[in-house]
Design a protein around this nucleic acid. Structure first.
Length: 275
DNA sequence: CTGCTTCCCTGACGGC
DNA sequence: TGCCGTCAGGGAAGCA
């Protein structure tokens, strides 16, 4: 379940292997992932040079002159650069074969996604894909801060955790990091978004930035399904204070952490430290 | 517009 | 050991 840090780690891992390389061939073993894979992927991508590998929210974009391949890893997706003769395994849905270049011969960018919540779509040059419209700011950008959260939250009755996970408010804060940031900022995930003060939103924005930046620095969280782009399993254990610790003692006060569902998502918080 | 629910999919895990 | 039910989770879509 890649969250933003895992996607950014993937981007950084892939970029040196992909940028400047020509896509020689596209192999689709399924016609669809979450959505049908559009015909442009087969029709326009072969022969194109990948100019840059970008990230927007949890989407990756492979930019070429004829357009951009838009990838989302969903819950269980991974991208790896492998020798072209690597045997295909279960759930290897898409290959982008890369043309030889110097000593770097016969490689393939392989997209594996057991649960198929991911997608591979196409964005024409100069356009912004429908899915990327209406997204909130990047959490690590200057546009995202406490004042911004405060302004956007006025009148919102939804729990602050739901608000924080709304991609139209800020992108890339999934269930794990939302729980961690709220713990860090001492805010109850149940609190009405519109009733959190400006000052506390300042603390929350800082917590989000700190936690995401740290996770990126560490190469993404542990995440069961995450595999780093060079094929090494990315099992970094990030010390999580809240997520997955229901019933266990609060790392700050020792009182048992509470666990419950907020908006159909499991949440853990400390009833004493988070108000 | 906000907010709530449902659904997609498969592997992991617990219970019998 | 094997079968089966349940859960997880990003986020779009549909509905109130």
């Amino acid at each position: 379940m890649p969250e933003l840090p895992e996607v950014e780690t993937t981007r950084r891992g892939l970029a040196p292997h992909l940028e400047g390389r020509i896509v020689s061939d596209v192999v689709l073993r399924r016609p669809d992932l979450r959505w049908p894979i559009p015909p442009e992927i087969r029709a326009l991508l072969p022969g194109q040079r990948i100019d840059s590998v970008r990230r927007r929210a949890k989407y990756l974009l492979l930019d070429t002159e004829s357009g951009s391949a838009l990838l989302h890893l969903g819950m269980s997706g991974s991208l790896r650069v492998l020798p072209a003769d690597t045997p295909v395994e279960a759930h290897d849905h898409v290959d982008l074969n890369l043309a030889d270049r110097g000593r770097s011969k016969g490689r393939v960018l392989r997209f594996n996604d057991p649960r198929r919540f991911g997608c591979l779509l196409w964005q024409p040059p100069g356009q912004v894909h429908e899915l990327l419209r209406g997204l909130g700011p990047e959490p690590l950008s200057d546009a995202f801060d406490g004042d911004y959260l405060f302004a956007r939250s006025r009148g919102r009755k939804a729990p602050v955790k739901t608000f924080l996970m709304d991609q139209g408010i800020v992108v890339g804060v999934g269930n794990i990091y939302a729980a961690e940031a709220l713990f860090d900022a001492g805010i109850s995930p149940l609190r009405e978004a519109g009733k959190v003060s400006r000052e506390r939103y300042g603390a929350l924005a800082e917590a989000v930035k700190r936690i995401l930046a740290y996770a990126i620095e560490r190469g993404g969280t542990t995440l069961r399904d995450f595999i780093s782009p060079d094929g090494v399993p990315g099992y970094f254990e990030l010390e999580l204070s809240a997520y997955g610790r229901g019933g266990q003692p609060c790392p700050r006060c020792g009182k048992p952490m509470k666990e419950g569902a907020i908006g159909q998502r499991t949440t853990v918080w400390c009833p004493r430290c988070q108000r």
